[in-house]
Design a protein around this nucleic acid. Structure first.
Length: 572
RNA sequence: UGUCCGAUGGUGUAACGGCAGCACUGCAGAUUUUGGUUCUGUAAGUCCAGGUUCGAAUCCUGGUCGGACAACCA
Protein backbone atom coordinates (compact mmCIF):
# COMPACT_ATOMS: atom_id res chain seq x y z
CA UNK A 1 0.00 0.00 0.00
CA UNK A 2 1.35 3.40 -0.91
CA UNK A 3 1.69 6.09 1.72
CA UNK A 4 -1.17 8.16 0.40
CA UNK A 5 -3.44 5.14 0.10
CA UNK A 6 -2.57 4.22 3.65
CA UNK A 7 -3.33 7.74 4.79
CA UNK A 8 -6.65 7.65 2.97
CA UNK A 9 -7.71 4.35 4.43
CA UNK A 10 -6.91 5.55 7.92
CA UNK A 11 -8.65 8.84 7.47
CA UNK A 12 -11.77 9.25 9.58
CA UNK A 13 -14.83 10.54 7.83
CA UNK A 14 -14.84 14.23 8.59
CA UNK A 15 -17.17 15.55 11.26
CA UNK A 16 -19.38 18.56 10.95
CA UNK A 17 -18.96 21.27 13.54
CA UNK A 18 -21.80 20.01 15.72
CA UNK A 19 -20.43 16.49 15.79
CA UNK A 20 -17.12 17.99 16.82
CA UNK A 21 -18.78 19.75 19.72
CA UNK A 22 -20.49 16.53 20.73
CA UNK A 23 -17.29 14.50 20.58
CA UNK A 24 -15.52 17.14 22.62
CA UNK A 25 -18.33 16.94 25.20
CA UNK A 26 -18.05 13.16 25.18
CA UNK A 27 -14.32 13.37 25.82
CA UNK A 28 -15.03 15.64 28.78
CA UNK A 29 -17.77 13.31 29.99
CA UNK A 30 -20.19 16.19 29.95
CA UNK A 31 -23.71 15.11 30.92
CA UNK A 32 -22.21 11.72 31.94
CA UNK A 33 -21.61 11.04 28.28
CA UNK A 34 -25.25 11.26 27.31
CA UNK A 35 -26.31 12.59 23.92
CA UNK A 36 -29.95 13.54 23.75
CA UNK A 37 -31.46 15.62 20.97
CA UNK A 38 -34.95 16.59 19.97
CA UNK A 39 -36.92 17.58 16.92
CA UNK A 40 -39.21 20.42 18.04
CA UNK A 41 -41.80 21.33 15.38
CA UNK A 42 -44.59 23.78 15.99
CA UNK A 43 -47.84 22.11 14.86
CA UNK A 44 -48.93 25.02 12.70
CA UNK A 45 -48.11 23.68 9.26
CA UNK A 46 -46.87 20.70 7.33
CA UNK A 47 -43.28 19.54 7.44
CA UNK A 48 -41.10 20.32 4.44
CA UNK A 49 -37.77 19.17 3.08
CA UNK A 50 -36.00 21.68 5.33
CA UNK A 51 -37.55 20.02 8.36
CA UNK A 52 -36.48 16.69 6.91
CA UNK A 53 -32.87 17.82 7.12
CA UNK A 54 -33.38 18.70 10.77
CA UNK A 55 -35.18 15.42 11.50
CA UNK A 56 -32.49 13.35 9.81
CA UNK A 57 -29.79 15.30 11.58
CA UNK A 58 -31.27 15.19 15.09
CA UNK A 59 -32.30 11.54 14.94
CA UNK A 60 -29.05 10.77 13.14
CA UNK A 61 -26.93 12.33 15.87
CA UNK A 62 -28.78 10.35 18.52
CA UNK A 63 -28.20 7.13 16.62
CA UNK A 64 -24.56 7.86 15.89
CA UNK A 65 -23.77 8.59 19.52
CA UNK A 66 -26.02 5.92 21.02
CA UNK A 67 -28.36 8.53 22.44
CA UNK A 68 -31.99 9.41 22.07
CA UNK A 69 -34.03 11.88 20.12
CA UNK A 70 -37.40 13.17 21.28
CA UNK A 71 -40.26 14.37 19.19
CA UNK A 72 -41.48 17.49 20.91
CA UNK A 73 -44.31 19.66 19.72
CA UNK A 74 -43.61 23.28 20.48
CA UNK A 75 -47.25 24.07 21.06
CA UNK A 76 -47.20 27.33 22.95
CA UNK A 77 -49.45 29.33 20.65
CA UNK A 78 -52.96 27.85 20.53
CA UNK A 79 -54.20 30.29 17.91
CA UNK A 80 -52.24 28.83 15.01
CA UNK A 81 -51.87 25.23 16.09
CA UNK A 82 -54.05 22.19 15.58
CA UNK A 83 -54.19 18.40 15.83
CA UNK A 84 -54.33 18.15 12.04
CA UNK A 85 -50.77 19.40 11.99
CA UNK A 86 -49.71 17.22 14.91
CA UNK A 87 -50.96 14.16 13.07
CA UNK A 88 -49.31 15.07 9.79
CA UNK A 89 -46.00 15.76 11.53
CA UNK A 90 -46.09 12.36 13.21
CA UNK A 91 -46.97 10.62 9.97
CA UNK A 92 -44.24 12.37 8.03
CA UNK A 93 -41.56 11.78 10.65
CA UNK A 94 -42.44 8.10 10.80
CA UNK A 95 -42.50 7.86 7.02
CA UNK A 96 -39.00 9.29 6.89
CA UNK A 97 -38.01 6.29 8.96
CA UNK A 98 -37.57 7.68 12.45
CA UNK A 99 -38.91 6.35 15.72
CA UNK A 100 -39.26 8.49 18.82
CA UNK A 101 -40.45 5.44 20.78
CA UNK A 102 -42.41 6.57 23.84
CA UNK A 103 -40.86 10.03 23.76
CA UNK A 104 -43.66 12.01 22.16
CA UNK A 105 -43.72 15.21 24.13
CA UNK A 106 -45.46 18.55 24.07
CA UNK A 107 -44.32 21.84 25.49
CA UNK A 108 -47.87 22.04 26.80
CA UNK A 109 -47.04 19.03 29.01
CA UNK A 110 -44.80 21.41 30.93
CA UNK A 111 -47.13 24.38 31.38
CA UNK A 112 -47.50 23.68 35.10
CA UNK A 113 -43.76 23.32 35.64
CA UNK A 114 -43.04 26.36 33.52
CA UNK A 115 -45.52 28.32 35.62
CA UNK A 116 -43.71 27.27 38.79
CA UNK A 117 -40.38 28.24 37.28
CA UNK A 118 -41.83 31.64 36.41
CA UNK A 119 -43.06 32.12 39.97
CA UNK A 120 -39.55 31.29 41.09
CA UNK A 121 -38.12 34.01 38.85
CA UNK A 122 -40.63 36.57 40.09
CA UNK A 123 -39.67 35.76 43.66
CA UNK A 124 -36.04 36.28 42.76
CA UNK A 125 -36.90 39.66 41.27
CA UNK A 126 -35.96 38.41 37.81
CA UNK A 127 -39.39 38.76 36.26
CA UNK A 128 -42.28 41.17 36.61
CA UNK A 129 -45.79 41.74 35.43
CA UNK A 130 -46.03 44.62 32.99
CA UNK A 131 -49.33 46.40 32.28
CA UNK A 132 -48.29 48.03 29.05
CA UNK A 133 -50.05 47.25 25.79
CA UNK A 134 -48.39 45.50 22.86
CA UNK A 135 -47.96 48.85 21.18
CA UNK A 136 -46.42 50.48 24.23
CA UNK A 137 -43.99 47.64 24.68
CA UNK A 138 -42.99 47.83 21.04
CA UNK A 139 -42.60 51.60 21.27
CA UNK A 140 -40.36 51.42 24.33
CA UNK A 141 -38.19 48.58 23.12
CA UNK A 142 -35.93 50.90 21.14
CA UNK A 143 -34.19 49.83 17.97
CA UNK A 144 -31.08 47.78 17.33
CA UNK A 145 -29.06 50.98 17.44
CA UNK A 146 -30.96 52.80 20.22
CA UNK A 147 -31.63 51.49 23.73
CA UNK A 148 -35.15 50.94 24.96
CA UNK A 149 -36.94 52.55 27.88
CA UNK A 150 -37.72 50.73 31.07
CA UNK A 151 -41.31 49.86 31.78
CA UNK A 152 -42.96 51.89 34.58
CA UNK A 153 -43.99 48.53 36.08
CA UNK A 154 -40.50 47.18 36.07
CA UNK A 155 -39.81 47.86 39.70
CA UNK A 156 -43.21 47.14 41.18
CA UNK A 157 -42.98 45.09 44.38
CA UNK A 158 -42.44 41.44 43.63
CA UNK A 159 -45.38 40.47 45.84
CA UNK A 160 -47.55 42.58 43.56
CA UNK A 161 -46.16 40.91 40.41
CA UNK A 162 -46.74 37.55 42.00
CA UNK A 163 -50.32 38.38 42.89
CA UNK A 164 -50.97 39.75 39.41
CA UNK A 165 -49.39 36.73 37.76
CA UNK A 166 -51.75 34.39 39.63
CA UNK A 167 -54.65 36.59 38.64
CA UNK A 168 -53.53 36.44 35.01
CA UNK A 169 -53.62 32.70 35.22
CA UNK A 170 -57.05 32.84 36.83
CA UNK A 171 -58.44 34.70 33.86
CA UNK A 172 -59.04 38.05 35.56
CA UNK A 173 -57.71 40.01 32.58
CA UNK A 174 -58.52 40.21 28.90
CA UNK A 175 -56.11 39.40 26.10
CA UNK A 176 -53.18 41.76 25.98
CA UNK A 177 -53.91 43.46 29.31
CA UNK A 178 -50.77 42.25 31.02
CA UNK A 179 -47.66 40.19 30.33
CA UNK A 180 -44.96 38.64 32.42
CA UNK A 181 -41.54 39.94 31.42
CA UNK A 182 -38.02 38.88 32.29
CA UNK A 183 -36.11 41.67 33.98
CA UNK A 184 -32.87 41.85 32.06
CA UNK A 185 -31.57 44.98 30.36
CA UNK A 186 -33.50 47.47 28.27
CA UNK A 187 -30.24 48.89 26.97
CA UNK A 188 -28.81 45.60 25.77
CA UNK A 189 -27.50 45.72 22.21
CA UNK A 190 -29.30 42.41 21.80
CA UNK A 191 -32.97 43.20 21.34
CA UNK A 192 -33.97 39.85 22.77
CA UNK A 193 -32.51 40.80 26.13
CA UNK A 194 -34.68 43.91 26.48
CA UNK A 195 -37.07 42.49 29.05
CA UNK A 196 -38.57 39.84 26.75
CA UNK A 197 -42.13 38.64 27.26
CA UNK A 198 -42.42 35.27 28.99
CA UNK A 199 -46.20 34.97 29.22
CA UNK A 200 -49.06 36.55 27.37
CA UNK A 201 -52.80 36.30 27.95
CA UNK A 202 -54.62 34.38 25.22
CA UNK A 203 -58.17 33.35 25.94
CA UNK A 204 -58.30 30.55 23.42
CA UNK A 205 -58.69 26.80 23.70
CA UNK A 206 -55.53 24.81 23.20
CA UNK A 207 -55.58 21.61 21.15
CA UNK A 208 -54.30 19.64 24.12
CA UNK A 209 -54.99 21.57 27.32
CA UNK A 210 -58.34 22.88 26.09
CA UNK A 211 -59.47 25.67 28.42
CA UNK A 212 -57.16 24.97 31.30
CA UNK A 213 -54.90 27.90 30.54
CA UNK A 214 -55.42 31.45 29.41
CA UNK A 215 -51.79 32.44 29.71
CA UNK A 216 -49.25 30.88 27.40
CA UNK A 217 -45.46 30.89 27.55
CA UNK A 218 -43.51 32.37 24.68
CA UNK A 219 -41.00 30.38 22.65
CA UNK A 220 -37.98 31.82 24.41
CA UNK A 221 -39.30 31.00 27.83
CA UNK A 222 -40.66 27.57 26.98
CA UNK A 223 -38.00 26.16 24.75
CA UNK A 224 -34.85 26.03 26.83
CA UNK A 225 -36.74 24.95 29.92
CA UNK A 226 -38.46 22.18 27.96
CA UNK A 227 -35.04 21.07 26.79
CA UNK A 228 -33.87 20.98 30.40
CA UNK A 229 -36.95 19.08 31.59
CA UNK A 230 -36.40 16.43 28.92
CA UNK A 231 -32.70 16.11 29.61
CA UNK A 232 -31.73 17.39 26.19
CA UNK A 233 -27.96 17.79 25.93
CA UNK A 234 -27.61 19.37 22.49
CA UNK A 235 -30.43 21.61 21.38
CA UNK A 236 -29.89 22.05 17.68
CA UNK A 237 -31.78 24.79 15.89
CA UNK A 238 -31.44 27.08 12.90
CA UNK A 239 -29.33 30.19 12.59
CA UNK A 240 -32.05 32.75 13.18
CA UNK A 241 -32.08 31.69 16.83
CA UNK A 242 -28.44 32.59 17.26
CA UNK A 243 -29.36 35.97 18.77
CA UNK A 244 -31.71 34.18 21.13
CA UNK A 245 -28.93 32.09 22.64
CA UNK A 246 -27.92 34.66 25.30
CA UNK A 247 -31.54 34.62 26.45
CA UNK A 248 -31.66 30.82 26.37
CA UNK A 249 -28.63 30.83 28.65
CA UNK A 250 -29.93 33.68 30.80
CA UNK A 251 -33.04 31.73 31.73
CA UNK A 252 -31.00 28.66 32.66
CA UNK A 253 -28.74 30.87 34.77
CA UNK A 254 -31.68 32.58 36.42
CA UNK A 255 -33.08 29.18 37.36
CA UNK A 256 -29.60 28.22 38.60
CA UNK A 257 -29.45 25.16 36.39
CA UNK A 258 -25.96 23.74 36.45
CA UNK A 259 -26.26 20.00 35.97
CA UNK A 260 -27.62 18.54 32.74
CA UNK A 261 -27.71 21.95 31.25
CA UNK A 262 -28.78 21.90 27.61
CA UNK A 263 -26.73 23.76 25.04
CA UNK A 264 -28.22 25.48 22.04
CA UNK A 265 -26.27 25.10 18.79
CA UNK A 266 -27.34 26.72 15.54
CA UNK A 267 -26.81 25.58 11.96
CA UNK A 268 -27.85 26.99 8.60
CA UNK A 269 -31.28 26.00 7.36
CA UNK A 270 -31.71 24.27 4.04
CA UNK A 271 -32.58 26.33 1.00
CA UNK A 272 -33.25 24.82 -2.40
CA UNK A 273 -33.10 26.37 -5.84
CA UNK A 274 -36.47 26.80 -7.58
CA UNK A 275 -38.21 26.34 -4.23
CA UNK A 276 -39.82 28.44 -1.54
CA UNK A 277 -39.50 26.96 1.89
CA UNK A 278 -41.19 29.17 4.43
CA UNK A 279 -44.34 27.82 6.02
CA UNK A 280 -46.02 31.15 5.46
CA UNK A 281 -45.45 31.03 1.72
CA UNK A 282 -46.43 27.39 1.45
CA UNK A 283 -49.61 28.12 3.38
CA UNK A 284 -50.31 30.96 0.97
CA UNK A 285 -49.98 28.62 -2.02
CA UNK A 286 -52.44 26.22 -0.42
CA UNK A 287 -54.91 28.90 0.60
CA UNK A 288 -54.97 30.76 -2.72
CA UNK A 289 -55.31 27.42 -4.53
CA UNK A 290 -52.13 27.76 -6.55
CA UNK A 291 -51.64 24.15 -5.54
CA UNK A 292 -54.34 21.70 -4.58
CA UNK A 293 -53.24 20.87 -1.06
CA UNK A 294 -50.33 20.58 1.32
CA UNK A 295 -49.52 17.25 -0.31
CA UNK A 296 -49.68 18.55 -3.86
CA UNK A 297 -46.76 16.82 -5.61
CA UNK A 298 -45.30 20.20 -6.52
CA UNK A 299 -44.92 21.19 -2.88
CA UNK A 300 -41.58 20.76 -1.11
CA UNK A 301 -43.50 19.33 1.84
CA UNK A 302 -42.71 15.82 2.98
CA UNK A 303 -46.26 14.80 2.09
CA UNK A 304 -45.91 16.45 -1.32
CA UNK A 305 -42.63 14.70 -2.03
CA UNK A 306 -44.18 11.42 -0.91
CA UNK A 307 -47.10 11.86 -3.28
CA UNK A 308 -44.68 12.90 -6.00
CA UNK A 309 -42.93 9.56 -5.59
CA UNK A 310 -39.82 10.42 -3.62
CA UNK A 311 -38.63 7.70 -1.27
CA UNK A 312 -37.62 8.21 2.37
CA UNK A 313 -34.25 6.67 1.54
CA UNK A 314 -33.53 9.26 -1.11
CA UNK A 315 -34.47 12.10 1.22
CA UNK A 316 -32.23 10.70 3.95
CA UNK A 317 -29.32 10.39 1.55
CA UNK A 318 -29.94 13.92 0.37
CA UNK A 319 -30.00 15.24 3.94
CA UNK A 320 -26.67 13.58 4.52
CA UNK A 321 -25.13 14.98 1.36
CA UNK A 322 -26.13 18.62 1.89
CA UNK A 323 -23.97 18.80 4.99
CA UNK A 324 -24.25 20.85 8.14
CA UNK A 325 -22.55 24.21 8.56
CA UNK A 326 -23.23 27.78 9.57
CA UNK A 327 -23.01 29.57 6.28
CA UNK A 328 -26.15 30.45 4.35
CA UNK A 329 -26.59 28.08 1.47
CA UNK A 330 -28.80 27.33 -1.46
CA UNK A 331 -28.63 23.74 -2.59
CA UNK A 332 -29.12 22.92 -6.24
CA UNK A 333 -32.41 21.04 -6.52
CA UNK A 334 -30.53 18.85 -9.04
CA UNK A 335 -28.87 17.20 -6.05
CA UNK A 336 -32.26 16.17 -4.65
CA UNK A 337 -33.25 14.85 -8.05
CA UNK A 338 -29.96 12.99 -8.32
CA UNK A 339 -30.55 11.26 -4.97
CA UNK A 340 -34.06 10.40 -6.07
CA UNK A 341 -33.04 8.94 -9.44
CA UNK A 342 -30.22 7.02 -7.84
CA UNK A 343 -32.59 5.17 -5.53
CA UNK A 344 -35.45 4.79 -7.98
CA UNK A 345 -33.10 3.33 -10.60
CA UNK A 346 -32.42 0.51 -8.19
CA UNK A 347 -35.97 -0.23 -7.14
CA UNK A 348 -38.42 0.96 -9.80
CA UNK A 349 -40.21 -1.60 -11.95
CA UNK A 350 -39.83 -0.94 -15.66
CA UNK A 351 -42.79 -0.53 -17.90
CA UNK A 352 -43.28 0.92 -21.37
CA UNK A 353 -45.72 3.79 -21.68
CA UNK A 354 -46.27 6.20 -24.51
CA UNK A 355 -46.99 9.73 -23.39
CA UNK A 356 -47.51 11.42 -26.74
CA UNK A 357 -48.66 8.68 -29.09
CA UNK A 358 -48.53 8.27 -32.82
CA UNK A 359 -49.71 5.13 -34.60
CA UNK A 360 -47.13 2.85 -36.18
CA UNK A 361 -48.13 0.03 -38.54
CA UNK A 362 -45.86 -2.81 -39.50
CA UNK A 363 -47.03 -3.56 -43.02
CA UNK A 364 -45.34 -6.94 -43.38
CA UNK A 365 -46.49 -8.27 -40.00
CA UNK A 366 -49.47 -10.69 -39.98
CA UNK A 367 -52.79 -8.99 -39.29
CA UNK A 368 -54.10 -11.08 -36.46
CA UNK A 369 -50.92 -12.24 -34.85
CA UNK A 370 -50.02 -11.49 -31.22
CA UNK A 371 -46.61 -12.42 -29.90
CA UNK A 372 -45.82 -12.56 -26.25
CA UNK A 373 -42.48 -10.91 -25.63
CA UNK A 374 -40.70 -10.60 -22.32
CA UNK A 375 -38.77 -7.90 -20.53
CA UNK A 376 -37.04 -7.85 -17.19
CA UNK A 377 -38.97 -5.98 -14.55
CA UNK A 378 -35.78 -4.29 -13.41
CA UNK A 379 -32.49 -4.87 -15.25
CA UNK A 380 -30.61 -3.31 -12.30
CA UNK A 381 -31.87 -6.15 -10.17
CA UNK A 382 -31.42 -9.55 -11.82
CA UNK A 383 -33.54 -11.10 -9.07
CA UNK A 384 -36.65 -9.49 -10.48
CA UNK A 385 -38.89 -11.56 -12.73
CA UNK A 386 -39.68 -11.11 -16.38
CA UNK A 387 -42.88 -9.44 -17.51
CA UNK A 388 -44.93 -10.33 -20.58
CA UNK A 389 -45.50 -7.77 -23.30
CA UNK A 390 -47.88 -8.38 -26.23
CA UNK A 391 -46.68 -7.39 -29.69
CA UNK A 392 -48.95 -6.82 -32.68
CA UNK A 393 -49.03 -5.23 -36.11
CA UNK A 394 -50.27 -1.85 -34.91
CA UNK A 395 -48.47 0.02 -32.17
CA UNK A 396 -48.18 3.36 -30.50
CA UNK A 397 -44.79 4.97 -30.36
CA UNK A 398 -43.70 8.31 -28.99
CA UNK A 399 -44.26 11.11 -31.45
CA UNK A 400 -40.85 12.58 -30.54
CA UNK A 401 -39.19 9.33 -31.57
CA UNK A 402 -39.88 10.05 -35.20
CA UNK A 403 -38.56 12.87 -37.34
CA UNK A 404 -39.21 13.37 -40.99
CA UNK A 405 -36.12 15.42 -41.49
CA UNK A 406 -33.76 14.51 -38.66
CA UNK A 407 -30.48 16.16 -37.68
CA UNK A 408 -27.29 14.13 -38.03
CA UNK A 409 -27.13 12.51 -34.65
CA UNK A 410 -30.78 11.51 -34.42
CA UNK A 411 -30.70 7.78 -33.66
CA UNK A 412 -34.41 7.22 -33.70
CA UNK A 413 -36.94 6.57 -36.45
CA UNK A 414 -36.92 8.51 -39.70
CA UNK A 415 -37.86 7.74 -43.31
CA UNK A 416 -35.70 4.89 -44.59
CA UNK A 417 -33.98 4.46 -41.19
CA UNK A 418 -33.97 1.53 -38.83
CA UNK A 419 -34.44 1.28 -35.10
CA UNK A 420 -35.10 -1.48 -32.63
CA UNK A 421 -38.42 -1.70 -30.88
CA UNK A 422 -37.37 -2.51 -27.37
CA UNK A 423 -37.74 -6.21 -26.50
CA UNK A 424 -38.99 -6.79 -30.09
CA UNK A 425 -37.86 -6.37 -33.66
CA UNK A 426 -35.82 -4.04 -35.78
CA UNK A 427 -38.09 -2.02 -38.02
CA UNK A 428 -37.54 0.25 -40.97
CA UNK A 429 -39.64 3.27 -41.76
CA UNK A 430 -41.15 3.07 -45.25
CA UNK A 431 -43.66 5.91 -45.38
CA UNK A 432 -45.87 8.25 -43.41
CA UNK A 433 -49.50 9.26 -43.70
CA UNK A 434 -50.44 12.85 -42.91
CA UNK A 435 -53.64 14.63 -42.16
CA UNK A 436 -54.33 16.56 -45.38
CA UNK A 437 -55.70 19.50 -43.40
CA UNK A 438 -53.10 19.98 -40.68
CA UNK A 439 -50.11 18.18 -42.12
CA UNK A 440 -49.80 16.27 -38.86
CA UNK A 441 -48.44 12.75 -39.14
CA UNK A 442 -51.21 10.26 -38.38
CA UNK A 443 -49.54 6.96 -39.26
CA UNK A 444 -46.02 5.72 -39.68
CA UNK A 445 -45.63 2.69 -41.88
CA UNK A 446 -42.75 0.30 -41.36
CA UNK A 447 -41.51 -3.14 -42.23
CA UNK A 448 -39.92 -5.45 -39.72
CA UNK A 449 -37.08 -7.94 -39.93
CA UNK A 450 -38.43 -11.26 -38.66
CA UNK A 451 -34.89 -12.45 -37.91
CA UNK A 452 -34.19 -9.63 -35.48
CA UNK A 453 -36.40 -10.64 -32.59
CA UNK A 454 -34.89 -9.75 -29.22
CA UNK A 455 -32.97 -12.60 -27.67
CA UNK A 456 -32.93 -14.59 -30.90
CA UNK A 457 -31.54 -12.05 -33.28
CA UNK A 458 -29.84 -13.66 -36.27
CA UNK A 459 -30.20 -10.63 -38.52
CA UNK A 460 -26.63 -9.36 -37.88
CA UNK A 461 -28.05 -5.87 -38.01
CA UNK A 462 -26.71 -3.10 -35.80
CA UNK A 463 -28.91 -0.16 -35.01
CA UNK A 464 -28.08 2.90 -32.95
CA UNK A 465 -31.50 3.49 -31.51
CA UNK A 466 -34.01 1.59 -29.47
CA UNK A 467 -37.46 3.00 -28.88
CA UNK A 468 -40.36 1.99 -26.68
CA UNK A 469 -43.86 1.16 -27.85
CA UNK A 470 -47.16 -0.33 -26.79
CA UNK A 471 -49.48 -2.59 -28.73
CA UNK A 472 -52.39 -0.51 -29.96
CA UNK A 473 -55.05 -3.04 -29.11
CA UNK A 474 -53.54 -3.90 -25.72
CA UNK A 475 -52.76 -0.35 -24.67
CA UNK A 476 -53.99 0.61 -21.21
CA UNK A 477 -55.18 4.15 -21.03
CA UNK A 478 -53.82 6.05 -18.05
CA UNK A 479 -53.71 9.61 -16.83
CA UNK A 480 -50.17 10.92 -16.52
CA UNK A 481 -49.60 13.97 -14.37
CA UNK A 482 -46.42 15.54 -15.60
CA UNK A 483 -44.99 17.65 -12.83
CA UNK A 484 -42.29 20.20 -13.29
CA UNK A 485 -40.80 22.68 -10.85
CA UNK A 486 -43.33 25.00 -9.26
CA UNK A 487 -41.14 28.06 -9.61
CA UNK A 488 -39.30 29.01 -12.75
CA UNK A 489 -36.41 30.96 -11.25
CA UNK A 490 -33.51 29.68 -9.22
CA UNK A 491 -34.13 32.02 -6.33
CA UNK A 492 -37.87 32.73 -6.43
CA UNK A 493 -37.71 35.27 -3.63
CA UNK A 494 -35.86 37.59 -5.95
CA UNK A 495 -38.69 39.34 -7.77
CA UNK A 496 -39.31 42.60 -9.53
CA UNK A 497 -40.04 45.71 -7.53
CA UNK A 498 -43.44 45.44 -5.88
CA UNK A 499 -43.83 41.75 -6.72
CA UNK A 500 -43.10 38.62 -4.72
CA UNK A 501 -42.27 34.97 -5.33
CA UNK A 502 -45.67 34.36 -6.86
CA UNK A 503 -44.58 36.28 -9.94
CA UNK A 504 -42.06 33.49 -10.50
CA UNK A 505 -44.56 30.65 -10.57
CA UNK A 506 -44.10 28.25 -13.45
CA UNK A 507 -47.38 28.10 -15.40
CA UNK A 508 -46.33 24.73 -16.79
CA UNK A 509 -45.71 23.07 -13.44
CA UNK A 510 -48.46 20.52 -14.09
CA UNK A 511 -49.58 19.03 -17.38
CA UNK A 512 -52.19 16.31 -17.31
CA UNK A 513 -52.18 14.04 -20.35
CA UNK A 514 -53.72 10.80 -21.50
CA UNK A 515 -51.08 8.16 -22.03
CA UNK A 516 -50.93 4.48 -22.97
CA UNK A 517 -49.15 1.76 -21.08
CA UNK A 518 -48.31 -1.87 -21.69
CA UNK A 519 -50.72 -4.25 -19.92
CA UNK A 520 -48.45 -4.81 -16.90
CA UNK A 521 -49.06 -1.19 -15.95
CA UNK A 522 -52.28 -2.38 -14.33
CA UNK A 523 -50.32 -4.34 -11.75
CA UNK A 524 -49.15 -1.42 -9.67
CA UNK A 525 -50.66 -0.38 -6.39
CA UNK A 526 -50.93 3.12 -5.00
CA UNK A 527 -47.47 4.41 -4.17
CA UNK A 528 -45.65 1.86 -6.37
CA UNK A 529 -42.45 3.12 -7.93
CA UNK A 530 -42.24 2.65 -11.68
CA UNK A 531 -39.96 3.70 -14.48
CA UNK A 532 -41.58 4.48 -17.78
CA UNK A 533 -38.68 3.32 -19.89
CA UNK A 534 -36.71 6.05 -21.59
CA UNK A 535 -38.97 8.64 -19.99
CA UNK A 536 -38.97 9.00 -16.23
CA UNK A 537 -39.94 7.72 -12.83
CA UNK A 538 -43.59 7.64 -11.89
CA UNK A 539 -45.71 6.61 -8.96
CA UNK A 540 -49.36 5.67 -8.65
CA UNK A 541 -51.33 8.56 -7.15
CA UNK A 542 -53.49 7.89 -4.07
CA UNK A 543 -56.54 8.96 -6.07
CA UNK A 544 -55.91 6.32 -8.72
CA UNK A 545 -58.59 3.64 -9.25
CA UNK A 546 -58.79 0.55 -11.48
CA UNK A 547 -61.04 2.43 -13.87
CA UNK A 548 -59.03 5.61 -13.79
CA UNK A 549 -55.36 4.94 -13.35
CA UNK A 550 -53.29 7.96 -12.37
CA UNK A 551 -49.52 8.15 -12.49
CA UNK A 552 -47.55 11.09 -11.11
CA UNK A 553 -44.22 11.83 -12.72
CA UNK A 554 -41.64 11.97 -9.95
CA UNK A 555 -38.70 13.04 -12.05
CA UNK A 556 -37.64 12.56 -15.64
CA UNK A 557 -34.72 10.40 -16.63
CA UNK A 558 -31.63 12.39 -17.45
CA UNK A 559 -31.93 13.36 -21.07
CA UNK A 560 -28.69 13.97 -22.90
CA UNK A 561 -30.52 14.10 -26.24
CA UNK A 562 -32.48 17.11 -25.01
CA UNK A 563 -29.15 18.78 -24.27
CA UNK A 564 -27.89 18.05 -27.76
CA UNK A 565 -31.05 19.57 -29.22
CA UNK A 566 -30.69 22.60 -27.02
CA UNK A 567 -27.13 23.10 -28.15
CA UNK A 568 -28.13 22.72 -31.80
CA UNK A 569 -30.75 25.37 -31.16
CA UNK A 570 -28.16 27.67 -29.66
CA UNK A 571 -25.83 27.29 -32.57
CA UNK A 572 -28.77 28.19 -34.82
C1' U B 1 -23.90 55.02 12.89
C1' G B 2 -25.50 48.94 16.99
C1' U B 3 -24.89 43.60 18.33
C1' C B 4 -24.15 38.76 16.64
C1' C B 5 -22.88 35.28 12.67
C1' G B 6 -20.62 33.94 8.17
C1' A B 7 -17.15 34.06 3.59
C1' U B 8 -13.02 27.63 -0.21
C1' G B 9 -14.74 25.94 -8.04
C1' G B 10 -21.38 27.31 -10.87
C1' U B 11 -23.75 24.82 -6.10
C1' G B 12 -22.68 22.43 -1.51
C1' U B 13 -19.01 20.54 1.70
C1' A B 14 -13.72 18.82 3.59
C1' A B 15 -8.70 20.20 5.16
C1' C B 16 -7.78 21.47 12.61
C1' G B 17 -0.14 25.46 10.69
C1' G B 18 2.57 21.15 6.01
C1' C B 19 0.56 18.47 -1.63
C1' A B 20 -6.73 22.44 -1.52
C1' G B 21 -10.01 16.80 -1.56
C1' C B 22 -15.19 14.89 -2.25
C1' A B 23 -20.23 15.29 -4.19
C1' C B 24 -23.81 17.59 -7.51
C1' U B 25 -23.71 20.36 -12.02
C1' G B 26 -21.00 21.23 -16.83
C1' C B 27 -17.94 19.26 -20.80
C1' A B 28 -15.49 14.94 -23.47
C1' G B 29 -15.15 9.75 -24.23
C1' A B 30 -16.15 4.22 -23.38
C1' U B 31 -20.00 0.61 -22.53
C1' U B 32 -25.17 -0.05 -23.34
C1' U B 33 -31.53 -3.54 -26.75
C1' U B 34 -33.51 2.70 -21.89
C1' G B 35 -29.69 9.02 -25.73
C1' G B 36 -31.05 5.67 -18.78
C1' U B 37 -27.46 3.14 -15.63
C1' U B 38 -22.24 2.23 -15.09
C1' C B 39 -17.12 3.53 -16.03
C1' U B 40 -13.05 6.91 -17.48
C1' G B 41 -11.23 11.61 -18.24
C1' U B 42 -11.69 16.98 -17.85
C1' A B 43 -12.86 22.16 -16.54
C1' A B 44 -13.58 25.22 -12.40
C1' G B 45 -12.03 27.54 -5.88
C1' U B 46 -9.32 29.67 -0.67
C1' C B 47 -13.27 37.81 -0.54
C1' C B 48 -9.32 41.90 -0.10
C1' A B 49 -4.92 44.20 2.36
C1' G B 50 -1.37 43.79 5.94
C1' G B 51 1.04 40.87 9.96
C1' U B 52 3.00 36.22 12.66
C1' U B 53 5.67 31.81 10.74
C1' C B 54 10.67 27.99 7.45
C1' G B 55 5.56 27.38 5.87
C1' A B 56 -1.27 30.33 6.28
C1' A B 57 -7.61 28.36 3.41
C1' U B 58 -6.34 27.68 8.60
C1' C B 59 -3.60 32.16 13.61
C1' C B 60 -3.73 37.95 14.41
C1' U B 61 -5.26 43.08 12.75
C1' G B 62 -8.02 46.09 9.48
C1' G B 63 -11.36 46.32 5.54
C1' U B 64 -15.13 44.43 1.89
C1' C B 65 -19.35 41.68 0.98
C1' G B 66 -23.57 38.64 2.68
C1' G B 67 -27.08 37.14 6.56
C1' A B 68 -29.80 37.50 11.34
C1' C B 69 -32.01 40.70 15.16
C1' A B 70 -36.69 46.15 16.61
C1' A B 71 -44.27 39.68 17.28
C1' C B 72 -47.47 39.31 23.43
C1' C B 73 -44.77 34.01 16.15
C1' A B 74 -41.66 29.86 16.39
Amino acid sequence: MSDTAKKDSLKQPSLNFIEEIIEEDLRNNKNEGRVHTRFPPEPNGYLHIGHAKSICFNFGLAKKYSGKCNLRFDDTNPITESVEYVDSIKEDTRWLGYDWEEREFYASDYFETLFDYAVNLIKKGKAYVCDMSTEEIAATRGTPTRPGKESPWRNRPLEESLELFYQMRDGKYPNGAKVLRAKIDMASPNMHMRDPVMYRIIHAPHHRTQNKWCIYPTYDWAHGQSDYIEGITHSVCTLEFEVHRPLYDWFLDALEIKKNRPRQIEFARLNLTYTVMSKRKLLELVENKTVNSWDDPRMPTISGLRRRGYTPESIRVFSEKVGVAKRENIIDVALLEHCCRQHLNKIASRVMAVINPVKLIIDNYPDNKTEELTGRINPEDPDTLMRKIPFTKTLFIEREDFMEDPPKKFFRLAPGKEVRLKYAYIIKCESVVKDPETGEITEIHCTYDAESRSGQDISKKKVKGTIHWVSYEHAVKIEARLYDRLLKTENPDVAEEGKDFKSNLNPGSLKIVEAYGEPSIRNFKKGSKVQFERNGYYTVDPDSTEKHIIFNRTVTLRDSWAKVLKNIGKKG
